[in-house]
């Protein structure tokens, strides 16, 4: 019970805040509750297949395979592979964090992991099709091209400015965050 309260303390505080809001300004309060609820439904509808695919990837793809395709020596092909993984995805960026952590734990290079995160954020193909219908092809393609240059530079910068010690810290952190639920530790920060 205490562990539950500790793990969910931020969530519970916000619930309390929403309740206060409902009492003080009922209109705003109910809007906040219904917005959160809508997002919850949206997220619950996206998340199950992602986590199932992650679980399957975890047991079927060995560290060696991952290192071969996305590891340090994977070169241009590894970068293309990271790009495709990000482009053929769906969901908000925060859904990509656990996947990126899994890739890191399996030995993917920092450049490839950040390229994957970048592609996921700015170049999801399904979302871009919708963007074209709303903002036009010219805007969408310009934005895509310019952002693509940006995310490649960012991935490069993230990999280059992380020395070995820092890289190890990032990997450890990703591994720790990923396995936290498995070792009955009490959750730390959200």
């Amino acid at each position: 019970m205490k562990a539950f309260l500790t793990r969910y303390r931020f969530f519970l505080s916000f619930i309390l805040l929403d309740i206060v809001l409902c009492l003080a300004m009922s209109e705003k309060g109910s809007l906040a509750v219904s917005s959160s609820f809508d997002s919850l439904i949206e997220m619950l509808s996206i998340i199950p297949p992602i986590f199932i695919l992650m679980g399957l990837m975890d047991v079927w793809i060995s560290k060696e395979t991952m290192m071969k395709y996305l590891g340090k020596g994977s070169g241009f092909l590894g970068a293309c592979f990271s790009f495709l993984l990000g482009a053929f995805s769906a969901g908000p960026l925060y859904a990509a964090f656990p996947l990126a952590a899994l890739f890191l734990r399996k030995g993917a290079s920092l450049f490839n992991v950040f390229l994957f995160l970048g592609t996921w954020s700015v170049a999801k193909i399904p979302m871009m099709l919708f963007e074209i219908t709303q903002l036009g092809a010219r805007f969408t393609l310009l934005r895509f091209t310019l952002n693509l240059v940006g995310i490649i530079l960012i991935a490069f910068a993230m990999a280059r400015t992380s020395d070995e010690e820092r890289e190890k810290e990032i990997r450890d952190r990703a591994e720790e965050a990923e396995t936290q639920g498995q070792s009955q530790q009490q959750g730390s920060r959200p």
Partner: peptide
Amino acid sequence: AALRKAWKSFESILPSILTVLMIIGLILT
């Protein structure tokens, strides 16, 4: 084993996800 892992990684991140959802609600309001 894969399904167990899927559930565990979901469960371990659930508190953070729920907190983010609450923040989204307030922002949209």
